[in-house]
Simulated scan of single mutants.
Amino acid sequence: MTTKQTGTYFPAGGIDEFLPRIGRVVEIDDLQLAVFRASDGTIFAADNHNPHPKGGPLAEGIVSGHYLYDPLYDWKIDLTTGQVQAPDNGQVQMYPVKVENDQVWIAV
């Protein structure tokens, strides 16, 4: 798994600001993150940079289960690990997320 383990959590917004299955861009320090809320309520935070050689934003992807479907390159990315699924390959940097008192916190 490529989740950064730094431990300093920053507020990213209220849980209601993150609509199910739709990405939202959150900026923390100099990082631009794509934050997703799965239909089961799980929140995921990833670097908002597609690992495809041509790049692009990940926040525009569509979430189904715990997978992100990138409409630009038709890639499938596991949001629990950041791993791009075969036949494609690549890795997305994921960040730890916690929810406390309806507030989303992301560690960077």
Results as ranks from 00 to 15, higher is better:
17 E>D: 11
48 N>L: 06
7 G>W: 01
29 D>W: 02
51 P>E: 12
75 W>P: 15
94 M>P: 13
106 I>V: 01
58 L>C: 13
57 P>S: 06
95 Y>H: 09
25 V>M: 11
102 D>F: 01
18 F>V: 07
24 R>A: 09
49 H>A: 09
54 K>R: 15
96 P>I: 00
76 K>Q: 15
61 G>C: 10
20 P>N: 00
93 Q>V: 07
83 Q>F: 02
91 Q>W: 03
5 Q>S: 15
55 G>T: 09
71 P>H: 13
71 P>D: 05
15 I>L: 14
12 A>V: 01
68 L>C: 12
46 A>L: 11
108 V>I: 00
91 Q>P: 09
105 W>C: 01
82 G>E: 04
74 D>C: 12
66 H>E: 12
54 K>W: 09
99 V>G: 08
20 P>F: 03
67 Y>A: 15
98 K>R: 13
87 P>Q: 10
19 L>Y: 07
75 W>K: 15
89 N>E: 11
104 V>Q: 05
5 Q>V: 02
32 Q>P: 10
76 K>N: 13
12 A>R: 01
47 D>R: 06
8 T>K: 01
88 D>T: 05
20 P>L: 03
29 D>I: 00
38 A>F: 00
66 H>R: 06
32 Q>T: 10
51 P>D: 13
35 V>Y: 04
71 P>K: 11
104 V>T: 03
101 N>W: 02
12 A>D: 05
97 V>P: 13
104 V>S: 05
59 A>K: 04
42 T>N: 03
8 T>M: 10
13 G>L: 04
78 D>R: 04
66 H>Q: 06
94 M>H: 08
55 G>Y: 01
96 P>R: 01
55 G>A: 12
24 R>Q: 14
59 A>H: 14
97 V>L: 03
11 P>W: 00
27 E>T: 10
63 V>N: 14
49 H>W: 05
75 W>N: 15
79 L>D: 03
67 Y>H: 14
6 T>F: 03
9 Y>T: 07
69 Y>H: 15
4 K>Q: 13
52 H>I: 06
89 N>F: 04
14 G>P: 05
15 I>R: 06
47 D>M: 02
21 R>W: 08
61 G>I: 01
89 N>T: 14
84 V>D: 13
88 D>I: 08
37 R>A: 11
73 Y>S: 15
59 A>D: 11
55 G>C: 07
52 H>W: 07
45 A>M: 01
95 Y>N: 04
40 D>N: 11
24 R>M: 07
79 L>S: 11
104 V>K: 03
2 T>R: 12
67 Y>C: 15
